[in-house]
């Protein structure tokens, strides 16, 4: 075992590398960071309940997409009977005016990259 020194150094480097996400987050001081959403100021009611939107907005948006594009139905009738035009840019972003402080805040946190904004336009410019 005359190489013990080299092996130990090697192992130490290995451990350091695979724990990179842990110590890097700790060192950057963002360990306790949680996404903070900027909620609309003038509106308290989204198209559906808060719990539903939180958990299922992606499915709702997929349904909206299919209804508008495939079936040519562009008006959504919500659970409470209110009607909304199914448009990401014009309906969602009308209240959630700041995409960076609403959509991106959570999406970045959990590391999902929805492709909505590859094409759909943020009316305020990217």
């Amino acid at each position: 075992m005359h190489d013990a020194g080299k092996v130990i150094i090697g192992l130490a480097i290995f451990v350091l590398l695979i724990t990179f996400p842990i110590w890097f987050t700790l060192a950057s001081g963002k360990a306790g960071h949680r996404p903070e959403l900027e909620l609309p100021k003038n509106e308290t009611q989204c198209v559906e309940s808060k719990e539903y939107m939180k958990a299922w907005h992606m499915d709702l948006l997929n349904d909206w997409r299919d209804a508008a594009v495939r079936d040519g139905k562009r008006m959504y009738v919500a659970e409470d009977g209110k009607k909304y035009v199914m448009s990401l840019s014009l309906t969602c972003l009308k209240c959630h005016t700041n995409k960076a402080k609403f959509c991106d805040e959570c999406h970045n946190y959990v590391g999902v990259v929805p492709y909505c904004w590859d094409c759909h336009v943020d009316p305020k410019g990217d």
Binding site: D59, L60, D63, R74, M75, K83
Partner: peptide
């Protein structure tokens, strides 16, 4: 409630009420 109802709802798929825009 969420946990139980979710698989059902997603399995059913498209089930939302939609309309055409007025004057289309």
């Amino acid at each position: 409630g969420l946990g139980l109802a979710v698989p059902v709802a997603t399995a059913i798929g498209k089930a939302l009420t939609t309309e055409t825009l007025p004057g289309h």
